[in-house]
Amino acid sequence: MTAQPARPDQPDRPVLPHPPLDERRVDAYLARIGAARPAAPDLAGLRALQQAHLARVPFENLSVRLGEPIVLEPDALVAKLLDRHRGGFCYELNGAFAALLGALGYRVELLAARVFGDNGPGPLFGHLALRVLLAEPWLVDVGFGRFSGLPLRLADRGEQHDPAGVFTVRDHGPDLDVLEHGAPQYRLDQRSYQLPDFVPTCWWQATSPDSHFTRSTTCSRATAEGRITLSGDRLIRTAGGERHEERLTDPDERLAAYREHFGITLEPAALERLG
């Protein structure tokens, strides 16, 4: 896996090499997330697009649990969101969002990250996030589950107050650590990469028994009040710092919850495989 070093102070370097989405797909994508087309590729538009994406497209690992192939190509990622009305995990969600942003005129790059766990940061390419280059570089992430609702300033080392919490970005050698309420979330490699660079680790995440994505099912999205998540047969709502959980023991209830809260229609046989 190779990549050319990229620095935020190099404004003329190339961005994503694939052709942009055509106007028909851009319009369909904006309709999918319920967002208006920005008048210009600016920060206000980026903020609105990120919030809309988080509210309408779920973070979910259903494809992993169902054994469906995950194809890290822009057209395939966008088709999953638009034609199948599905979500995905980081490689899919941020990969598709990068394609939309690029088509709307934003200068966007793919960044690799190490996700922090109990034993420190995991392997590189364990997460895919986005850097959007405006007057300054911004961290954009619609594929980390519960995370910042708005773009974060990558050059700011102070506290950044977001609807989802307080975030900070710290230097760690050539990398950047992103923290939420003081707890490290992931370590960003500041070089830019391309989607094929993430394929091996994406495959591992989707197939290894050691990956947490293969061990349990989750489907989650942001709401105006907080978050709603279906984890196995547990429907979890958070609002104002309070958590409410109910068990959906009836399969029909779970199927209805996927439809009502996430817009995902599943066959009963698929539900049995999700566990």
Rank of each mutant, 00 (worst) to 15 (best):
P17M: 01
D210R: 15
L43F: 14
G226V: 07
Q10D: 15
R254Y: 09
E245T: 13
R221V: 07
L16T: 15
F213Y: 15
L54R: 02
G275T: 09
A112I: 02
A155L: 15
A112R: 03
I264E: 07
G165N: 04
D156Q: 12
R32P: 03
D75V: 08
D22R: 07
S216M: 14
R56G: 00
H181V: 02
R7V: 04
E92P: 06
R187K: 11
P69I: 09
Q194T: 05
A40R: 14
D75T: 14
R273A: 06
Y29M: 08
L54D: 05
R84A: 09
V132W: 13
P8R: 14
G226S: 09
L124R: 09
F59C: 08
A6W: 14
G122C: 02
L111D: 08
L266P: 10
L62Y: 00
L100S: 01
S192N: 07
D175E: 15
G232M: 12
L30N: 06
T249K: 09
E109K: 12
L152S: 02
F125S: 02
L72Q: 12
Q185F: 04
L130E: 03
D171I: 07
N61Y: 12
F125Q: 05
Q160F: 08
V178Q: 08
E23W: 09
T238G: 01
L104A: 07
H127P: 06
A39W: 00
F59Y: 14
T207E: 01
A40H: 08
A3Y: 06
F125A: 02
R243W: 05
V199C: 11
G88M: 03
H127E: 02
G173F: 12
G87E: 04
R146S: 11
G240R: 13
G182L: 07
P58T: 03
F167E: 10
F116I: 01
W138S: 05
R259V: 00
G34T: 03
R13P: 01
Y193S: 00
L266M: 07
E180Y: 06
T217H: 13
V169A: 11
Y106P: 11
